[in-house]
Computed example of a mutant assay.
Amino acid sequence: MDSTEATPRRGRPGYDQSSMLEVIVQVFTDHGYDASSLGMISTRLGLSKSAVYHHFASKAEMLEIALERALGALEQVFDEAERGGNGAGAAGAAGAGSDAVGQIREIVRAAVLVACEQQPYLILLLRLHGNSDVELRALERRRALTARLRAIFERARNEGALRDDLDPGLAARFTFGLVNSLVEWYRPDGPETPEALAEAVLSYVRSGLRVNEVADFR
């Protein structure tokens, strides 16, 4: 072993905040956010604690940035679908027979893609306990997304596209529950593509909610 190999490295060249965050999220997931320490994180990264703090001001900031990956992407899904529902985008132009149903279709499809693409970050979000201000804010944003989906399901029911004996709040929770369950078993190298999973989830939502024929979820 030469002298270079014998000297402990204080950091790895080429690390940036994004690549570090992937490792940090895995530490949070493995040990839980509360139990994860800066020492664990720096050891997993192969960096000194001061090098980690060069990129992040605190552990809370690490969590906040990580949760934004999931929550920001999901909020964008709703924003784009709702704009489209007014005729500006794919949901409004699809000719589904109902703006609300068109929005539901676009939201479900895009949310599945987010679940696959942001899988580690969504797992972290789903395992929060609300023990810090960052977690509480994230949980409030998550509840707001459920409320937005509930409102769209209520509009779909009022338009006659959703069975009238099913509470829109339950429909929203069932739908998000189905999407969220993907993160526990989806594998990027598995046989199912995100696009195929999105179509499968849409099929289950359509059949489970027994929408009328006019509601085209295809």
Rank of each mutant, 00 (worst) to 15 (best):
R83D: 15
G102Q: 13
S36G: 02
L71R: 06
I107C: 08
A111Q: 04
E80Q: 08
R137Q: 08
V52A: 00
T4H: 12
E75D: 15
L125R: 02
N131H: 14
I24T: 10
S203I: 01
E135W: 12
S98H: 08
N180S: 11
A100L: 01
R69P: 07
Q26Y: 03
A100G: 04
A115M: 01
A96S: 15
G130A: 10
R69W: 08
E5M: 12
L202C: 00
E195L: 04
F78G: 06
K59H: 14
E117W: 03
I65A: 02
E159R: 07
L126E: 10
L136D: 14
F174R: 05
L136A: 14
S98I: 05
S98Y: 01
A96K: 13
S19Y: 00
P168Q: 15
G85L: 12
S36T: 09
A172V: 04
E68S: 10
V52S: 11
R141S: 14
G85W: 08
H54T: 14
R157D: 00
I152M: 06
E159F: 00
G85V: 13
M40N: 15
P191N: 07
G130C: 11
A81T: 01
R142M: 06
G32S: 10
Q17D: 09
K49I: 07
T43P: 00
G72T: 04
G160D: 12
G208Q: 10
T7K: 12
S3R: 11
L47Q: 15
G72V: 03
